Simulated scan of single mutants.
Amino acid sequence: MGDQPSAEALLRAMAATLADQVVPNVSGGPRHSARVVANLCTILARELASPGPGEVDEQLRALLTDRVGAGVSGHNLPALLDDRLREHDEEFAVRALPILRMDVERRLAISKPSYLHDPGAAGSERA
């Protein structure tokens, strides 16, 4: 059904409605709540539009398989990665860095895309 809006489009419309019509017409706690919900709708829309973690998981799985064999699953990837990085194996760390960077960039594109385009953005919000 190509004529129906996607979940991403619906979430973006909800965010715009809240930001443009609700937030300006309420104050106090309800205003804050409307902003939060609008922001959450925008984040969810970006998440739906983004590629999933599949490519990162595949690359990490391939990187870790040399040591642990075929028993690498998505659930134990973080723990196995932590264990390998604690070994201070510089060659492994050099191979893992671009994969981890890709994962961080994917996550930032969803949660805070401005951090990818403005190198000072991350530091400017720190307390």
Rank of each mutant, 00 (worst) to 15 (best):
L60N: 09
V36G: 00
G2K: 10
A62C: 02
V104K: 11
A122E: 10
P51I: 02
G71F: 08
R46D: 01
D57M: 07
A122N: 00
E125S: 03
N39P: 01
L40A: 14
R86Q: 12
A96K: 10
G52L: 08
P53T: 07
G52T: 15
L11S: 05
I99N: 02
A38D: 01
D89S: 11
H88P: 00
L63A: 05
R61Q: 07
G54R: 07
E125C: 11
S111F: 12
G52I: 02
D66N: 05
K112N: 08
C41A: 15
R126V: 05
A13M: 11
A49L: 00
L18S: 13
P5F: 10
I43N: 00
S33F: 08
H117A: 13
E125R: 11
P119G: 05
D83P: 05
L116H: 05
L116K: 08
V56I: 12
R106A: 14
G69V: 03
R101N: 04
N25E: 11
A34S: 04
S124V: 09
A121C: 03
G29T: 07
R31G: 10
S73K: 02
P24G: 01
E58P: 01
E87K: 15
A9P: 04
G52C: 11
G2H: 13
P51L: 06
G69I: 06
P24K: 09
R126D: 09
P24S: 10
S33Q: 12
P98H: 13
D82H: 15
T65H: 08
K112W: 12
A19D: 15
V56Y: 01
